[in-house]
Amino acid sequence: MARPGSGGTEGVEGGKSRFDDIYGRPDPRAYFRRLAPLEYEIPHHAQPVFRQAATERAALDDGCAHGPAVLDVCCSYGINAALLNHDVTLAEMHERYTYPGTQAMSTDELTASDKEFYAARRRPDPVPVFGLDVSAPAVQYALEVGLLDAAFTDDLEQGSPSPRLSRALAEVGLITLTGGGSYITARTFTALLDGARRPVWVSAFVLRTVSYQPIERTLAVHGLNTTVDVSRTYPQRLFTDEREQHYAIAAVRALGGDPTGCEENGRFYSLHYESRPDTP
């Protein structure tokens, strides 16, 4: 998948800042140190939405030996998985990983601490969560601390799913996405849905600077109807600088949107797209 996480340094592509360097670290501290000052918050807004979608999707498989798994695309360090299956908030995670005492730990020490931290906060009704991200260090950390049940680094923008991912797709009933809509295309969703063996729903938060229509068309080919309330927006993060803001305002206007009260106020905003079969 063409997203931050494949290495390199921070730069600007098309006017939007990239944070490639923070996704290749062995633990999430650099990720939170960089994004906390920018008030990155979209996983917080997605948390109740994903929980509701996961509950409703699981109800369709009621009586099956194994309930459907959630596949979080562009999962990085398992943030959405942490929020979905644990009694923890994004604000608490920001505080935890930027706390001076945490900064002094080695990665091994932090890993051990996180295992205990998340195990103590595990909800009584967890759902299986698989993670997909091109950053091997990020998904490996999420796997080691118990946030993910399985992790994959397949780049579906460039190739087909590996045999291991293909087998896992048979268990997936819900695909989630926050923030990755700027870096992946319909190619990734085609690969995932072609390998599905259960009815799959998609719940995605996508920046207003990005057209979701190509992905919507791909989902429609696979029998999914997409709905979106364009009047409801979700703050994503602060802009890094004026250049990024100018890019965002122009991109929103180019797609027929109005940046007044949103991007003009200094933040990226997202829309929520929900895709489900026309009939259960």
Rank of each mutant, 00 (worst) to 15 (best):
A168N: 03
T89A: 05
D72L: 12
R267E: 09
N225R: 15
G195C: 09
R164N: 02
R29S: 12
L174Q: 02
L255I: 06
I184L: 09
V134W: 00
A142P: 05
T240S: 08
E242C: 07
D61V: 00
T111V: 15
M93K: 01
H272D: 12
R34T: 15
T107I: 07
R243P: 00
P4L: 06
A196V: 03
D20F: 06
P137E: 05
Y273W: 14
R253E: 14
S182C: 08
C262K: 14
V252D: 05
L165Y: 01
G223K: 08
N265S: 10
S203E: 12
Y118K: 04
H94G: 03
L169G: 02
G11V: 12
Y212G: 03
V12F: 12
N80T: 14
R3W: 01
L84F: 09
F117G: 10
E13T: 15
G78W: 01
E109K: 04
A58F: 01
S113G: 11
S275Q: 13
Y40P: 13
T233G: 03
I215A: 03
E244V: 10
P137Y: 02
T233M: 06
G159Q: 10
H86G: 01
A248R: 05
G257R: 11
F19E: 08
S135T: 07
A142H: 03
V252S: 06
G179A: 10
D108Q: 09
R18Y: 09
F189E: 02
R123F: 00
T226L: 06
R51H: 10
P126E: 01
P259C: 11
L90D: 03
T153D: 05
R57E: 04
E216A: 15
A250T: 14
T188Y: 00
G15L: 07
L35Y: 05
V228G: 09
A142R: 06
D108P: 03
A82P: 01
P124V: 08
L238K: 15
L207C: 13
V73K: 01
P48N: 12
P259S: 13
R232P: 09
T89W: 07
V12G: 08
P100E: 00
T226H: 08
R96E: 00
R123C: 10
S17P: 10
L60W: 11
L224N: 09
G78T: 02
T209E: 10
A248I: 09
M105C: 07
Y141N: 05
Y31D: 08
